[in-house]
């Protein structure tokens, strides 16, 4: 089948998509956007998190056909012409990235949090990121990075 949707503000068309393919597979293997990651492919780890019409979803749990006509934003689309998004800058600065495999999903989830909750408490950060596994950092630097990202965003960065 053919699937047509918008990814990071660009119209995309994927042809010969098998009905069982996930949005994650189409992004990674057909559209050349491997930013969203394939750590578990069953919705447990959050590393494939992308925005679908502005709502964070696990791209591995979305059938490609469900994206038809909708808007997807991936980690590749977080930065703007002005530079890195606050979450990206903060994760890089605070040591929240080690192997980095969980990072794309965490960035989308954290970006959503600080958009909804401009000054999140630690409890709110933990709750928001509870579905994103990280095996390297022990999460301390990730908490710090989300606090910092909220500051950067509030300061208009």
């Amino acid at each position: 089948m053919r699937v047509r949707f918008s990814v990071n503000d660009r119209e995309q068309v994927a042809d010969d998509v098998w009905e069982g393919e996930s949005l994650l597979f189409v992004l990674r293997e057909r559209l050349g956007l491997p930013g969203a990651k394939n750590a578990c492919e069953q919705g447990e780890c959050g590393s494939c998190t992308v925005y679908l019409d502005g709502v964070p979803v696990c791209a591995c749990l979305v059938a490609a056909g469900q994206a038809q006509g909708r808007e997807v934003r991936t980690v590749e689309g977080l930065a703007s012409a002005d530079g890195l998004a606050p979450v990206q800058q903060a994760f890089a600065e605070c040591g929240a990235v080690q192997c980095g495999f969980c990072t794309p999903g965490l960035l989308v989830q954290a970006d959503d949090l600080i958009t909804r909750v401009p000054d999140p408490s630690d409890a709110e950060i933990r709750e928001a990121l509870a579905g994103n596994l990280c095996r390297c950092t022990g999460y301390e630097k990730i908490l710090e990075a989300v606090r910092r990202a909220a500051e950067l965003k509030a300061a208009g960065r």
């Binding site: 990674r28 293997e29 050349g32 956007l33 491997p34 930013g35 969203a36 990651k37 394939n38 991936t74 980690v75 590749e76 977080l78 930065a79 890195l84 979450v87 990206q88 800058q89 994760f91 890089a92 600065e93 040591g95 990235v97 980095g100 495999f101 990072t103 794309p104 960035l107």
Partner: peptide
């Protein structure tokens, strides 16, 4: 010094190529 990772920007923009991203 607490130097930042030189591959950090690649990793936060989704451009860092992991083995499963090879094509």
């Amino acid at each position: 010094d607490s130097v930042l990772r030189p591959d950090g920007t690649l990793k936060v923009t989704g451009e860092f190529a992991y083995a499963s991203d090879l094509w």
